[in-house]
Simulated assay, not measured.
Amino acid sequence: MPAFTIPALAIPALLFAGTMRAADAPVVVTSIKPIHSLVSAIMQGVGEPELIVDGAASPHTYNLKPSNARAMQDAKVIFWVGPGLEAFLEKPLQALGRNASIAALDDAPGLVKLPFREGGAFEPHDDAPEHESASGQHDEADAAHDADPGHASDHDHDHDHDTFDTHLWLDPMNAKAMAAMITTTLVAADPANALTYQGNAKALDDKLDALDTEIKDMVAPVKDKPFIVFHDAYQYFEHRYGIRVTGSITVSPETIPGAERVSEIHRKVGELGATCVFAEPQFEPRLVNVVIEGTRAKSGVLDPEAATLKAGPDLYFNLMRGIANSMKDCLSSA
């Protein structure tokens, strides 16, 4: 049988068609790895979103790069959590994202929002929540504000009142709510690829449900064992799975605690019977060793912002399984 060959005249046409397909994909920019992962999953088969906070960088301490600024200028859609987490993006978005649809995912309908904790083993916040109830729900004015369908593209959105914990993605049900907003935003910006986005979103939704069940089973044997974390980033994971975070070393990872605070937590480890104290890969893990010195507590590492993970559609699942596995391993052996 003769070998199949492509006519020479057809090659330029095929190359042109491939170029056109790539050009048709909208430029989409995302702020942090967990959000990039959700957007990547929904955009599979259309294009790949760009990521601002890459590698082991943290949104708490990030400085915008020139390449990030160029990407934001070219973007058709920009996804971020909101200024409560990525404060460094607030002004650049106003200056560079004028031509983009900007979606603050902390406005996604259906999110569970938890107020900051303080008191006891949790260091006080300067901006303690006043407008939210104990359940973390917004008041009526905020609820009406969130219901505004044009809100996702509002460049001038005032988040000064937002005093909830912004690590929203650490509950898979919140990830589902954010994925729904991501899908709606992409479909509006790029209706030609609506069916692909919607099909991918349905597959992602099913995977998130399966992940939720998997994590519940994984942490169930250790969920009643108390532990302390480097900073209070795990409320949503704790709330979803009934685990016992009993304190944090610092309230804000960009602020290294003083000797008095470290001594206080050292005492709390003994008083609370904490079985593990968890560091984070990019923030002063040596402090954890000081805190557990002379106690029976063990140390572990949690990575709530995926600093050590490779970006991509699987990252979110690796992130959540990694947290569950780290907790299970340390708490089981304690």
Score class of each variant (00 low, 15 high):
Pro221Cys: 05
Lys216Phe: 04
Ala108Lys: 06
Gly84Thr: 11
Ala8Pro: 05
Ala143Tyr: 02
Leu85Tyr: 11
Ser67Cys: 03
Ala143Asp: 12
Phe283Ile: 13
Asp24Ser: 15
Ala17Gly: 14
Ser333Tyr: 04
Ala324Arg: 13
His155Phe: 02
Phe237Asp: 01
His239Lys: 13
Ser332Ala: 12
Val187Met: 07
Leu170Arg: 02
Ser333Gln: 14
Asp160Tyr: 11
Ile52Val: 14
Asp212Gln: 12
Phe4Cys: 04
Glu293Phe: 00
Thr185Tyr: 01
His125Gln: 13
Ile215Asp: 00
Tyr241Cys: 00
Lys202Glu: 15
Leu96Ala: 02
Arg244Asn: 13
Asp303Gln: 06
Val245Trp: 03
Thr213Val: 15
Thr163Tyr: 01
Leu331Ala: 05
Ile243Met: 10
Ile32Asp: 07
Pro2Cys: 01
Ile42Met: 00
Ala23Ile: 10
Asp127Gly: 04
Ser263Asn: 12
His138Ala: 12
Gly119Pro: 12
Gln137Ile: 04
Pro257Ser: 02
Asp165Arg: 03
Met218Arg: 15
Lys223Ala: 14
His131Tyr: 11
Ala56Val: 10
Ile256Ala: 15
Pro285Tyr: 01
Phe16Leu: 14
Gln44Gly: 08
Arg70Trp: 07
Phe283Ala: 04
Gln73Asp: 07
Val28His: 06
Lys33Pro: 06
Gly97Pro: 09
Gly120Cys: 09
Leu204Arg: 12
Pro257Arg: 03
Ile6Cys: 08
Glu50Gly: 13
Arg117Ser: 05
Glu118Tyr: 03
Ala121His: 05
Arg321Cys: 01
Leu64Ile: 15
Val46Trp: 04
Tyr197Lys: 08
Asp314Ser: 05
Met320Val: 06
Pro285Phe: 00
Thr5Phe: 09
Gln235Ser: 10
Val251Ala: 15
Leu315Val: 03
Asp165Gln: 13
Ile323Met: 10
His155Asp: 09
Lys223Cys: 08
Met20Gly: 06
Pro12Asn: 03
Ser263Thr: 14
Gly199Met: 01
Leu315Asn: 06
Leu51Gln: 00
Phe116Leu: 12
Val27Ser: 09
Asp209His: 14
Leu93Gln: 07
Gly300Pro: 06
Gly150His: 13
Phe227Trp: 10
Glu118Cys: 09
Tyr62Met: 02
Pro221Gln: 02
Val290Gly: 01
Ala87Tyr: 12
Ala17Met: 08
Ser299Pro: 01
Pro7Ile: 04
Val301Pro: 03
Val53Leu: 03
Ala87Cys: 05
Leu272Glu: 11
Phe227Lys: 07
Thr183Leu: 09
Lys176His: 12
Ile102Pro: 03
Cys276Pro: 09
Ser248Gln: 08
Ala103His: 05
Gly18Cys: 11
Val219Asn: 01
Glu284Pro: 02
Asp107Pro: 00
Cys276Asp: 10
Gln282Asn: 14
Pro313Phe: 01
Asp126Gln: 11
Gly258Tyr: 08
Leu315Trp: 10
Arg21His: 11
Asn193Tyr: 08
Pro59Ile: 07
His161Pro: 02
Asp209Gly: 13
Gly150Lys: 13
Asp126Gly: 14
Pro49Gln: 03
Glu305Met: 13
Ile215Arg: 10
Pro92Ser: 04
Val46Ile: 15
Ala25Tyr: 07
Leu170Gln: 09
Leu14His: 05
Val291Arg: 01
Cys276Ser: 00
Asp224Cys: 06
Ala233Pro: 04
Thr19Lys: 13
Gly47His: 10
